[in-house]
Amino acid sequence: MKNDLKVQRAIFNITQEDLANKVSVSRQTIHAIESNKYIPSTTLAIKIAKVFGRGVEEIFILEESD
């Protein structure tokens, strides 16, 4: 699964730390999601999408291998 998090953060000019605080997780979690080392739970994915005012499928994209 790939994600658009870095681009969205750049558009909204938010750091990893800011995003982490907004969705109540640690900065390591946001970094792990962006590096594709961790797939967030449904709840967290929805929370992140809400921060950027987008749908979950616009930010988290399924790949062929999934």
Partner: peptide, 11 residues
């Protein structure tokens, strides 16, 4: 618990 315990840490 870690200081900031979340789903990634739990994983």
């Amino acid at each position: 618990k870690e200081k900031k315990e979340d789903e990634f840490i739990a994983n």
